[in-house]
Amino acid sequence: SALTVSVNLHPKNWFNNVFWEWLPSQIAELKLSAKLQFEISEVEFFTHRESITNALNIIKKSRSQVVIDNVKSSEKIAVLANYNQVCGLKLSYELIHLLNEKTQNQRQIKKIVEAANLLNLPVYAVGVETQKELFTLAKLGVVGAQGFYFSEPLQEFTQAVFN
Rank of each mutant, 00 (worst) to 15 (best):
V43S: 02
I58T: 08
G88K: 01
Q65S: 10
W22H: 13
Y124D: 15
K111G: 01
N100R: 15
E29V: 12
L3H: 12
V128E: 08
Q106I: 07
V86C: 08
Q26W: 14
V142C: 07
Q104K: 13
I59E: 01
N163R: 14
L89W: 04
L30D: 05
N54T: 03
Q104M: 03
L118A: 10
G147K: 12
P122E: 10
E101A: 14
N117R: 04
G88P: 05
H97Y: 12
A138T: 06
N54R: 06
V86I: 08
R107L: 15
Q85K: 06
F45I: 00
L99A: 03
V71K: 01
A34E: 13
I27M: 09
E133N: 08
G127W: 05
L137Y: 07
I77C: 03
F135C: 13
K12W: 03
L99C: 08
L154C: 09
L23E: 02
L98N: 14
K61I: 13
K31N: 15
L80N: 07
S25N: 07
A138K: 15
T53E: 12
F150R: 13
Q155R: 09
A2W: 04
L134S: 07
F162R: 15
Q26F: 08
T130N: 14
I112G: 07
K12Q: 03
R49G: 00
K139H: 13
V71E: 02
I59V: 05
E156M: 09
G141Q: 14
